[in-house]
Write a protein that binds this DNA or RNA. Structure first.
Length: 269
DNA sequence: ATGCCTAACCCCGTTAGA
């Protein structure tokens, strides 16, 4: 008999690059963890790319914010959860479906699809890059509010941030890209300096080739030319409950995969 | 070589992703 009181919470985050194209992969992923005795309690999905989505899995409470063709994020939880917010504070005119915040067992779950930001353009004045930086600043201010309220939270998702050299196959090649730009890194540090921990990197401080994304082009997957851009950040109280964080490479090797693979976090209950 | 995949959408090419 499994002692559920001692089993950890399992949280996963996955940019599926279209939920319609990847629904069977999501089902298989959840089934695999279920059959391995580590059922997923919380699943964050990004890039749904569909305005209308059905119930993704019958065993979960589902929240989603969507738009036609682009973006879209969902949070699936075992048991009840309540919607807190489906857009990031700080810009009333921003209607892109990139942010979802729910309460689950007194824990704040925040799923993000942070803007890519390319092209950076001359002097970093590209419209998309400025939107990314502004979005990161808005995220910083919102998380600061939660920190000051001592609200325990986990932020997971596709950050479109390569945190450091170790997180990409060729730092020289990424220099100047919106995912690896000094201004992106500064915004990332601002967020971490609220007292948050990059769960994967604190568990695996020196592990190279720990990637969560491989481009479809140029045999990137076959040659392991990847980048780590999908992350879980934990507030201090949750950092104390961090048991493990791993990147599950297997779904990237399935037939017609997403270009991202899931990150899996375990927290003590 | 802002490109050698992939998906959406809407017409069978364009846009976006990272």
């Amino acid at each position: 008999m499994i002692d559920t009181a001692l089993s950890p919470y399992v949280l996963a985050s996955w940019n599926v690059n279209s939920i319609r194209a990847r629904i069977d992969h999501v089902t298989r992923f959840l089934q695999d963890y279920q059959s391995r005795g580590a059922p997923v309690d919380v699943l964050f999905l990004q890039e749904l790319k569909a305005e209308q989505i059905d119930q993704i899995h019958p065993d979960y409470t589902q929240h989603a914010v969507t738009q036609k063709s682009y973006n879209g994020v969902a949070i699936l939880t075992k048991g009840p959860s309540t919607l807190i917010c489906d857009r990031l504070a700080g810009d009333k005119d921003d209607d892109q479906a990139r942010y979802l915040e729910v309460d689950w067992n007194g824990l704040r779950l925040i799923n993000i699809y942070l803007p890519n930001g390319n092209p950076v353009s001359d002097e970093g004045a590209g419209e998309k890059f400025l939107y990314k930086l502004a979005w990161m600043d808005r995220l910083y201010h919102h998380l600061k509010t939660l920190r000051e309220a001592n609200c325990p939270f986990v932020v997971g998702g596709d950050f479109n941030v390569i945190p450091a050299d170790i997180d990409c196959y060729d730092p020289a090649l990424w220099r100047g890209d919106a995912l690896f730009h000094p201004r992106t890194h500064r915004a990332w540090r601002m967020i971490l300096n609220l007292g948050l921990v990059d769960a994967f990197r604190v568990i695996h401080p020196n592990t190279p080739h720990a990637y969560s994304f491989w481009d479809y082009q140029g045999g990137a997957w076959q040659n392991d030319l990847g980048i780590r851009i999908d992350h879980f950040l934990l507030s201090p109280a949750l950092t104390d409950r961090l048991l493990s964080c791993a990147i599950d490479k297997s779904p990237r090797g399935w037939d017609r995969p997403s270009d991202h693979t899931p990150v899996v976090l375990k927290l003590s209950r």
